[in-house]
């Protein structure tokens, strides 16, 4: 066998390998197509349609003034929009922060060893398993002026008329809405943080304790930086959900001015269907605001990670 022919056969084998590689690569891409197609069609389609409509493209209503920024102009020009936006962000932020604090405390307790641990591992997941509407029903039962807390206050002689109980539901302070979100989302954040805590083990904390750190230092300098990925991902999800949630502000909110999703829904169900375009402008605004805030949050987190030398 000559040298040249052996080289030729080897390069042939190489070519066959790359052909096979190309085929497997192709099959890999094929496996990703269905998931991609669904998300692009639904997500992308909805996005494009929403933006087109909010800019005045709705030939099926006989409206076609594309591109027309008057819907955004009218929306952003009214002061009630900004009040609505403020309320939306206020409910979302306050409940996410409270749920985060409660969730971290709970996760830190759950990694300890104690007799009723199995019971608690079931218990804390319960709100995660049931719809928000159940939480709202419980809030109505507990927090309304004729509710259980008001009855308990009367039982202990603090008040003698339902009207004396501080109004919690249907005000713009939104403590009813916040209570529902916190009740439902503390378990979610606990789950995420607890998972990370289980993953990192206790060695680093032990090392810090041996080096003389007290509990506060251990938490803020050792534990917190390590659970941060879980904290960030779960708070991102909760915050985005709270911004876009409809049922709690609709039932427990203080009425006009409503949060943005409720405003959008009202525009959308108005008898005057041209208001749907205004509703679409509201929807796009929700997406924009949430996008900017979440992007900023992620960017800040990435910068922190880089400063810590992790990425």
């Amino acid at each position: 066998m000559s040298v040249s022919s052996s080289i030729a056969s080897r390069s042939g084998a190489q070519e066959r390998m790359t052909a096979r590689e190309r085929r497997t690569r192709f099959w890999q891409m094929v496996q990703l197509v269905p998931i991609m197609a669904i998300l692009v069609l639904l997500f992308g389609g909805a996005l494009v349609l929403a933006i087109l409509q909010s800019l005045g493209f709705a030939p099926w209503f006989g409206v076609n003034t594309f591109p027309d920024f008057s819907y955004f102009g009218a929306l952003w020009g009214s002061s009630t929009f900004w009040v609505s936006l403020g309320l939306t962000l206020y409910y979302a932020t306050v409940s996410t922060v409270i749920a985060l604090i409660l969730g971290i405390l709970l996760a830190l307790a759950l990694v300890k060893t104690f007799p009723s641990k199995t019971f608690y591992k079931y218990l804390y997941k319960l709100p995660l398993m049931i719809p928000y509407t159940v939480g709202i029903a419980l809030a109505v039962l507990m927090l309304s002026n004729g509710g259980m807390l008001s009855r308990l206050a009367a039982f202990f002689g603090l008040i003698d008329d339902p009207a004396q109980f501080p109004q919690i539901l249907k005000t713009h302070y939104g403590w009813g809405i916040i209570a529902v979100y916190v009740w439902k989302q503390t378990p979610f954040i606990t789950l995420a943080v607890y998972a990370v805590l289980l993953g990192i083990g206790r060695e680093t904390e032990e090392a810090a304790a041996i080096l003389g750190a007290n509990r506060r230092t251990i938490f803020f300098r050792v534990t917190l930086p390590q659970i941060l990925p879980g904290v960030v991902s779960s708070t991102l999800i909760c915050f985005a959900f709270n911004v876009g949630a409809f049922e709690a502000p609709f039932i427990l909110g203080g009425g006009f001015p409503d949060t943005l999703p409720v405003v959008a829904w009202r525009y959308f169900n108005d008898a005057d269907y041209t208001l749907q375009l205004q509703g679409m402008a509201t929807v796009v605004s929700i997406g924009l605001v949430a996008g900017v805030i979440l992007f900023g949050y992620l960017a800040a987190y990435r910068r922190y990670e880089r400063r810590m030398g992790r990425n």
């Binding site: 997500f43 909805a46 929403a50 985005a240 876009g244 949630a245």
Partner: peptide
């Protein structure tokens, strides 16, 4: 992405 935005669109 907020659910209300996806839902209405």
């Amino acid at each position: 992405v907020p659910e209300a935005a996806i839902g209405i669109a």
